[in-house]
Amino acid sequence: MSVKRRKFLDYILSLGFTGLVGSIIYPALSYLKPPKQAEAAVNSVKAGKVNEIPVNSGKIVRFGRKPVILIRTSTDEFIAFTATCTHLGCIVQYREDKQQIWCACHNGLFDLKGRNISGPPPRPLDPFLVQIIDDEIIIAKPKRMS
């Protein structure tokens, strides 16, 4: 075997090895690169800054795969409920005029405690916890007793 051929073989070996290391390191490093959304939204979710929501208004916030309605009441309190209507699962909205939570599908109404007060909804909306830390609104799942 000629020296030239051996050199070529060694060259291929190191090329293949480098390539392999590269194709392992690259996915591994990009795996470790923090994704845009820092973690799976399971227990809490950031809902924006306090000044982004005017008094007496509501906003739908995505909580993982479930929508949550965040309301800043006319008395300047922050409250949140699951936004899925208990009747047929439409997404509810905040009605500034009534100061109540309203489901457009069948005109269901909930009060600001989440209780179903009119229309077809059979059950109240589940409440969520709202915390404000450094002007940031954080919605959290209520701690369930287990």
Partner: peptide
């Protein structure tokens, strides 16, 4: 598609290692 790249290098390495073995054993 990404697999193609990795497979290319792995196959290259496999062939190279194979010849390396032959090389060493012939020696």
């Amino acid at each position: 598609r990404g697999l193609g790249v990795a497979t290319f290098f792995i196959l290259l390495l496999i062939i190279a290692v194979y010849f390396k073995i032959r090389n060493i054993e012939a020696k």
